[in-house]
């Protein structure tokens, strides 16, 4: 369990998602899945966060919010895109107000597939995010 040496704090932001992935992210916090046992904590403050968890795709209005949140997070930081919409735009990719996946705005380290992504795969994505975080930390150290 060496790469759990740091317990990552997560900032969740809902892009233009249908809510499905968001509530699955929240479901990860609750007794059945309980990510807090790994030391993973959901925080509301970007300046406390190590991992940015984004659900939903990018549209005209939230593009600057996502950029802003990413900028406010301290280095090293990791972005996890949760769900089909965050990965590529998903079922809404052809709607007029959708610009595509999160990687249009910020660099994405882990892509979690699914519509809606299941809690198990979200937790898996976060664990892979921890590994990416560890690598980045070694690089900067």
């Amino acid at each position: 369990m060496s790469f759990f040496s740091r317990s990552p704090w997560i900032l969740h932001y809902d892009g233009s998602s249908c809510n499905g992935c968001d509530i699955e992210v929240l479901a990860c916090l609750t007794p059945l899945y309980d990510v807090e046992r790994f030391g993973v904590l959901n925080t509301g403050n970007p300046k406390h966060a190590d991992i940015l968890l984004v659900t939903g795709s990018v549209n005209e209005k939230n593009i600057e919010i996502i950029e802003n949140l990413y900028r406010q997070m301290p280095d090293p930081k990791v972005v996890v895109a949760v769900g089909a919409c965050a990965c590529s735009g998903g079922i809404f990719a052809r709607a007029y107000n959708i610009q595509g996946g999160i990687d249009k705005v910020v660099p994405v380290d882990v892509y979690v597939p699914g519509c809606a992504a299941r809690p198990e795969s979200i937790i898996d994505g976060v664990v892979q995010g921890i590994a990416a975080l560890e690598q980045k930390r070694k690089k900067t150290a």
């Binding site: 233009s16 998602s17 549209n59 919010i65 079922i91 809404f92 052809r94 709607a95 959708i98």
Partner: peptide, 26 residues
């Protein structure tokens, strides 16, 4: 408007038999 996707316009691109799956994802 932070989540506005323009879902209603999808009827132009998706046939009525498939639109139900888009509507579910409102």
């Amino acid at each position: 408007g932070y989540i506005h996707r323009g879902l209603e316009m999808m009827v132009e691109r998706v046939e009525y038999t498939e639109m139900g799956f888009v509507v579910e994802r409102i």
